[in-house]
Amino acid sequence: MLGKAIRRMALFGAGIVGVAMFGALGAAHAQETTFDEVQLIVPYQEGGGSTIHARLLAPALEQALPGNPKILVRNIPGAGSVKGINEFYNAAKPDGRMIASLGTGTFFQYLLEDPAVKYPLAEFRPFLTSPFGLVVYARKDQGLKGDPIADIKKLREGRPVYGGANATSSDLPALLAIDLLGIKPQYLFGLSNAEAQAGFDRGELTLNYDNMASWANSVKPMIDEGTAVALFTFGFENENGDIVRDPMAPELPTFLEVYEEINGEPLEGTAYDVWKTLFDIRVMGSKMFSLPPGTPDHIYNVYAEAMKKALESDRLKSEQAEAVLGNYPQTVGTQAERTLAGATKMEGEQREWLKTWLKETHDVD
């Protein structure tokens, strides 16, 4: 237990990215800025990952913000997060009294130019990013042995069955990665994550993915008992910008590793650019807290400093926090803004490549 505690403390301590020092004017503004109440918009239903994340962090942030304001978590579900973030963009003033939780749907619908999107996502000011990895796995009873390269080649010969929400939901990065590896599943869409997992457990679905929050309690037990085999994780981007193995499962190869091993060359060009943007969204920007566009630096810095302080609190170093945040370093301040920039950067050629892929592979316009 002591080793685990030390490792957890080291990860949080080393991973939290420092915010730039205030100048004299910024410090004066920071001392003057207090809040009595803050709304936190979560654009998904109660009970989901974004709500759990928000309700874990909100009390610690309350204690760290000037004035110790009450943070009211408000769920506005609809249209894959678009409804809630549209309302946030329209209602939020740049005064620090309304913040939002950004999810993967917030990014995908923006990048795919969904006409329902009314928010300029690239102009938002995130002050926290909580990364979370992904793992792709398959049922062992398809003749798989537990060797990722051999198992992927085996799956390329057949038609595994994949179940998920739809092609433009949070499934999108996994769907693209699976296709780039040459696996051509039968798709069953319209399922929630719980329904897809239940179908996998029953053997009706044979290929699945999950975020690493489920690794220890759901995925690894299936592997240990011989029901499933892990194929790859998406990896994790370290402070040098290199994609390395996921810290939750360093024994598993990354997608880029297995792609290069199977194809004899690394993923490059437009396909890599699109995959990397989806990686930035789904892994590095898995959950974000953001202020609205136009928020002045002195308010932004107050939130960044408060979030940094909150992450050092006992509440966010607890086992409960580790169960939600995993062994991933949280990014604060300017590094969170860089993550947003990477996750919203998709040139016209890359966007058209993705739209063409969606049409040809999933008949989605």
Rank of each mutant, 00 (worst) to 15 (best):
P131E: 06
Q350L: 00
M98H: 08
I71E: 08
P292A: 09
R125Q: 10
L205R: 00
A79V: 05
L311I: 14
A122R: 11
I52K: 13
D273P: 08
R139K: 11
Q335S: 05
S130W: 12
K308E: 03
V364N: 11
L144H: 03
E312M: 13
E225W: 08
L102S: 04
G26M: 07
K309T: 13
W275I: 01
E268S: 06
A150G: 11
I99N: 04
Y110P: 09
L278Q: 06
M212P: 05
V17G: 11
N211M: 00
G158H: 07
T106D: 08
G203A: 03
A64T: 07
E46T: 15
T168H: 11
R315P: 07
G182L: 04
M212I: 13
L172C: 07
Q142I: 07
H29K: 14
D179S: 14
N193W: 13
S218T: 14
A91E: 09
F255E: 08
E195C: 02
Y187A: 05
L128K: 00
V364L: 11
E265Y: 07
G235L: 05
G158M: 09
D297K: 15
P69V: 03
K153G: 12
V73E: 03
A14P: 12
L180C: 05
S313G: 04
G333V: 00
P250Q: 06
D246A: 01
I76L: 01
R7T: 10
A79M: 14
G190C: 04
K184W: 07
L56N: 08
G203D: 02
A249L: 12
L155D: 08
S101K: 15
P43W: 02
T51A: 05
E195P: 03
K83A: 15
P115I: 01
V38G: 03
T51H: 10
E268A: 09
L316V: 01
E352L: 12
S313T: 02
T206M: 00
L56Q: 02
M248D: 11
E195D: 07
V136S: 11
K355M: 12
L102W: 01
R315K: 13
D273V: 01
F255M: 03
S50V: 03
G15R: 05
D273K: 13
S101C: 10
N301W: 07
E62L: 11
F232H: 05
A306G: 10
L181W: 01
A27R: 12
M288S: 11
P221W: 00
I262A: 02
K317P: 00
P120Y: 10
D171W: 08
T233S: 07
G163W: 05
G158F: 03
R159H: 12
Q320T: 14
L112R: 05
N166D: 14
M9P: 00
V42I: 08
A177D: 11
A165H: 15
D365I: 02
R7F: 13
L155V: 03
L358C: 10
A174P: 06
G47W: 00
D297W: 14
V136I: 09
T339F: 13
R315L: 07
M222P: 05
E195K: 06
L25K: 04
T331G: 11
A79D: 15
F108E: 09
T104F: 00
G143E: 02
K220E: 10
G67C: 01
Y272L: 13
P66F: 08
E157Q: 15
P77G: 06
Y328Q: 04
V364M: 12
A24Q: 03
L231E: 07
A177I: 01
G226E: 00
D297N: 14
